[in-house]
Design a protein around this nucleic acid. Structure first.
Length: 276
DNA sequence: CTTAAGGCCTGTTTGC
DNA sequence: TGCAAACAGGCCTTAA
């Protein structure tokens, strides 16, 4: 599942293929899912950036309107760019220097072309919290917000306290911080541990090129088919029943807020009484 | 305002 | 064996 590390890896890998190129066409047959992509035609790609799990292709102004645009891409669960067409190719992106194919078996991915910075109609992007690897992500603020939050895992997944955390990295971060996924109202000590766990996990995962899991459809790959390497460092995600790397207790899997949730019942006990 | 739940979508896995 | 049901899950929409 593409989360921040996978989206960042995608950005780094396809930027050399797109920067400075002119988009000739964005072809697909799902205008509701890939909105206003015709607005990208004829525009030059000035660069790529990322916000949370959103990928942004910055498009130079066209002669007709003099306005810069963004082609916003969300990879959803199974989206990714490839060099070759396949059975799940949903969008064909043709430039003056080659073609990229957007694969997305489960069709959770989305695209939209909008005037630069106009994100109306994208509530998650508008309300997005700070980037976990930037200086905007401040421990004090995170600790303050966590003190009154509900169950910590759904809170992390909301993208509001910090951006880019999805199901895999939420479970891994909570395991490192030794906090139960359903814990509410974190103490300053707990929130501080979680702050550093999120930063460390994201940093390590980006360096490893993200996580590639199994051989199934949800398996994230880079555009050239290369897998990431972080999955070998997962302590709990996908490890139900296997020993906790820290204490040996079998990892437990539960459903929390409709998400598969993995944790160590020994290292991550639920704190029931309020700290005095 | 906040929080919770349903829906989207389809290949794979599980269960009868 | 074969088919149906459950499962995976990020984010939007709707509801409370």
């Amino acid at each position: 599942m593409p989360e921040l590390p996978e989206v960042e890896t995608t950005r780094r890998k396809i930027e050399p293929l797109l920067a400075g190129r002119t988009i000739l066409s964005v072809a697909h047959d799902a205008p509701h899912r890939y909105r206003d992509t015709h607005l990208a035609h004829g525009r030059q790609v000035s660069g790529l950036s990322r916000r949370g799990k959103y990928l942004m292709l910055h498009l130079a102004a066209a002669e007709a309107d003099g306005e810069e645009h963004d082609l916003i891409v969300h990879l959803g669960m199974t989206g990714g760019f490839r060099l070759e067409e396949g059975p799940h190719t949903r969008v064909t992106l043709t430039t003056d220097a080659g073609t990229l194919y957007f694969h997305d078996p489960r069709r959770f991915g989305k695209m939209a072309v909008v005037p630069r910075g106009v994100y109306a109609g994208m509530p998650t992007l508008l309300a997005m919290g700070p980037e976990p690897l930037s200086e905007d992500f401040r421990e004090e603020e995170f600790v303050r917000l966590a003190a009154t939050a509900g169950a910590v895992k759904p809170w992390l997944l909301s993208q509001k306290p910090v951006s880019g955390v999805g199901n895999i990295y939420a479970d891994e971060s909570l395991w490192r911080a030794r906090i139960h996924p359903a814990q509410t109202r974190l103490t300053p000590e707990e929130a501080g541990r979680l702050y550093h766990a999120v930063r460390d996990v994201m940093h390590e995962a980006v360096e490893a090129g993200g996580s590639s899991l199994g051989d199934g459809l949800g398996n994230y790959r880079q555009h050239d088919g290369e897998p990431g390497a972080f999955q070998t460092r997962h302590a709990v995600y996908g490890h139900a029943g296997k020993p906790c790397p820290r204490c040996g207790t079998p990892i437990q899997k539960i459903v929390l807020a409709q998400r598969g949730t993995h944790f160590c019942p020994h290292c991550q006990p639920r704190r029931t009484e309020d700290p005095a």
